[in-house]
């Protein structure tokens, strides 16, 4: 089973600090990491490969340093690394990104594509479904367990807000996985040596995947960012006054009115 895993290099948003004076993000010194959901995607691909054979290709779009994320994935056990790197890809929204990744996937070839549910910098969860649409594949999103993948079919548990559903699709298909699906392995020493010293990253430009310039980068993006800004600081809080029973009643009423827990 040949599997493509899409990987994104992201800033570690749990480490992002806000400049208290300007209210803007301080990006300096924020480490770049492999997007957490994507690690689970890599792990699931490796487990399927161990069961069914084939190879795992990790695919990323980004600047040259995004190759680090691919090497980390390779150290876990992925066979091949492909980086889509071209100035023409810059400014892509999810439409253009899924077009670009989809065209690369066609060139690589696959039985299954696995993506993390979402990236922690953009939080859109749109790349997986849009790639599936681009490639006209069945999709199963929010996968929390892969039950079986033989006989040309895949059966997964897809998480819902109030439970889950068991879904079957014919291969080839595309999955997006959530962190419940598995526990990613640590890279082996041999894996690290191979990934960082022996293996080469295949780098493709827009021309290498025959991308239509109208469908990639800024030109291929229907959406544009009008502005970005720091979230409004919290307003002054309210101290509830009255007897214990009064304040408790007020508190519950306010929580219900404001629809705080959804």
């Amino acid at each position: 089973m040949d599997i493509i895993v899409c990987v994104k290099q992201v800033p570690d948003t749990t480490d992002v600090k806000i400049d208290p004076k300007t209210g803007t993000l301080i990006r300096e010194g924020v480490p770049s990491i492999v997007n957490p959901d994507d690690k689970h995607a890599i792990e699931e691909a490796l487990r399927l490969k161990e069961k069914f054979g084939g190879k795992v290709t990790v695919l990323s779009m980004g600047p040259p340093q995004a190759g680090d994320a691919l090497r980390e994935a390779s150290a876990m056990g992925a066979d091949d690394m492909v980086l889509l790197c071209d100035r023409a890809f810059a400014g892509a929204d999810t439409w253009a990104t899924s077009h670009t990744l989809g065209e690369a996937a066609k060139k690589i070839g696959y039985d299954l594509i696995i993506c993390g549910r979402e990236a922690i910098d953009g939080d859109t969860a749109q790349i997986g479904p849009q790639m599936a649409e681009h490639l006209e594949l069945p999709q199963i999103t929010y996968v929390r367990k892969v039950e079986s993948a033989d006989g040309g079919k895949i059966v997964c548990e897809r998480a819902l807000e109030d439970g889950y559903e068991r879904v079957e699709a014919n291969l080839p298909a595309l999955l997006t996985v959530i962190s419940d699906v598995n526990k990613p392995r640590y890279p082996s020493v041999r894996g690290i040596v191979e990934a960082y010293q022996e293996k080469e990253i295949t780098t493709w430009t827009a021309a290498d995947i025959n991308a239509d310039s109208a469908c990639i980068g800024l030109d291929g993006s229907p959406t544009s960012v009008k502005k970005s800004f720091a979230p409004e600081p919290k307003g002054e809080g309210e101290i509830l006054e009255g007897s214990t029973s009064e304040v408790c009643k007020q508190l519950v009423t306010k929580l219900m009115d404001k629809n705080v827990v959804r």
Binding site: D93, T94, W95, S98, G122, D123, T124, A125, Q126, G128, P129, Q130, A132, E133, H134, Q139, T141, Y142, R158, A159, L160, E161, S221, P222, T223
Partner: peptide, 23 residues
């Protein structure tokens, strides 16, 4: 932006060739 809405809307946006803003 439920597990169903976020599964469905991207697919529609892609085929219609239009934008989609998440969440």
């Amino acid at each position: 932006a439920t597990h169903i809405g976020r599964d469905l809307a991207p697919r529609i946006a892609k085929r219609l060739g239009t934008g989609l803003t998440a969440d």
